[in-house]
């Protein structure tokens, strides 16, 4: 499956919906989108990975790059992910301590609202 990307902004939080496989072939498209969003002033990002079938270290690199970019603007990049197969690679790399990972978009939005 290819990668499908969509995004929308609500109350200062931009949700990026990702569907499909994030790998060495498709990750550049996600990287371009995150860079474009930051360049347009969207510094609080929520990447919804509930429909991601596959994520490798190239995809992790893109998320890390996005997090560094938003942090440079005092922003945030958090994730929605409940799939064990995806969470496993975050655990292996220790990135569960770096990213805020939520069980749903609603939960992440509530947390973002509290932190504002």
């Amino acid at each position: 499956m290819d990668l499908k990307l969509d995004h929308h902004t609500e109350d200062g939080l931009t949700t990026v919906d990702v569907e499909g496989e994030i790998d060495v072939y498709t990750a550049p498209r996600l990287r371009e989108l995150l860079i474009d969003l930051v360049n347009k002033g969207n510094f609080h990002l929520l990447v919804n990975m509930e429909k991601v079938d596959f994520l490798d270290s190239t995809g992790l690199g893109v998320l890390v790059g996005g997090l560094k970019r938003v942090r440079a603007h005092d922003g945030s990049l958090e994730l929605v992910c409940t799939q064990e197969r995806i969470l496993k690679i975050f655990r292996i790399t220790g990135l569960t301590k770096v990213f805020g990972i939520y069980a749903s978009v609603e939960e992440a939005r509530e947390a973002h609202g509290r932190d504002k």
């Binding site: 990287r31 270290s57 190239t58 992790l60 690199g61 893109v62 890390v64 790059g65 560094k68 292996i92 790399t93 220790g94 990135l95 569960t96 301590k97 770096v98």
Partner: peptide, 20 residues
């Protein structure tokens, strides 16, 4: 591999290469 601390995290390039 452990990127959970800030010092390690900041050393990681955007594009993970072979060692990772």
């Amino acid at each position: 591999l452990h990127l959970g601390d800030e010092a390690s995290f900041n050393l990681v390039p955007d594009s993970f290469m072979s060692g990772f």
